[in-house]
Amino acid sequence: MSEQFEPNLVAFVCNWCTYAGADLAGTSRIQYPPNLSVIRVMCTGRINPLFVLNALQQGADGVLVSGCHPGDCHYMEGNYYARRRFTLMKDLLEYVGVDPKRFHMSWVSASEGAKWKEVVETTVNEAKEVGPFEQFQRNKINW
């Protein structure tokens, strides 16, 4: 293929920090790769780690989870729970052989438009490095 591989990424972002941060990146006219589909949730603590599995099954090449910095959660402690969960989910995915570059987590606050750009660039570049996800995608099943 002569065309460069463009990954399909899903980002679960929290309403209060990262979504506002991404909004700020937009209003500040910061340019960043368009490979990311953003799904807004109210808190990172609301993101079930099975969302990540489901996204990978349904055709995502990588997943990003992003929320408020520890201590800044709108609901006081949601991101602390999320941090524990995704620490374990990341280890589990890595253990079964899914490349760790396919899953990222970040803290981006409402004022960090520039950091959001960096996070997205890292995520997209790493997903480009590892190529399309085929391990357990639903439509790639070879009967």
Binding site: P49, L53, N54, Q57, L88, L92, L93, Q137
Partner: peptide, 25 residues
């Protein structure tokens, strides 16, 4: 539907990872 009922590598992997994760800790 978190995990479809069809028996294939995609759903089986999702099932096993989900179960392992639910037993984390």
């Amino acid at each position: 539907t978190w995990v479809n009922r069809s028996n294939n590598i995609s759903e089986n992997t999702a099932f096993h990872l989900a179960r392992a994760f639910h037993l984390a800790g």
